[in-house]
């Protein structure tokens, strides 16, 4: 499923709303999560999961072709940990 399909389905389920507004709802949620992460904050959505930022410290890397050692700068990467309920639902055959 892609974003436009998600919006279409939501609009179908909420016929009293304009599809344009549903689109803004989805984009607002994604933007709000992004801005929170940019500020170094976490977003915790019980049952669904939590978004956070992980710090990858600077390190001495290597160019695999030449074997030269290169300085790799510190990096911040987004991370999502699946919530308990969703994790169990996704793996329903086992749980």
């Amino acid at each position: 499923m892609i974003k436009s399909e998600l919006i279409e389905k939501l609009a179908e389920d909420h016929p009293h709303l304009y599809q344009r507004d549903v689109e803004r709802v989805v984009n607002t949620i994604l933007e709000e999560v992004t801005v929170a992460l940019e500020q170094g904050n976490r977003v915790e959505l019980r049952g669904f999961g939590a978004f956070s930022v992980r710090n990858r410290p600077a390190r001495q890397g290597r160019n695999p072709r030449t074997g030269d050692s290169v300085a790799v700068k510190e990096k911040h990467v987004p991370f999502f940990k699946t919530g308990k309920e969703l994790r169990e639902r996704v793996d329903a055959i086992n749980s």
């Binding site: 507004d21 607002t28 949620i29 709000e32 929170a36 500020q39 976490r42 977003v43 959505l45």
Partner: peptide, 16 residues
């Protein structure tokens, strides 16, 4: 800070 559903709802209320 930790954002929750309430913060997302508030953003939707404000923006949409």
């Amino acid at each position: 800070k930790t954002l929750t559903r309430a913060d997302l709802s508030e953003a939707v209320y404000r923006e949409v």
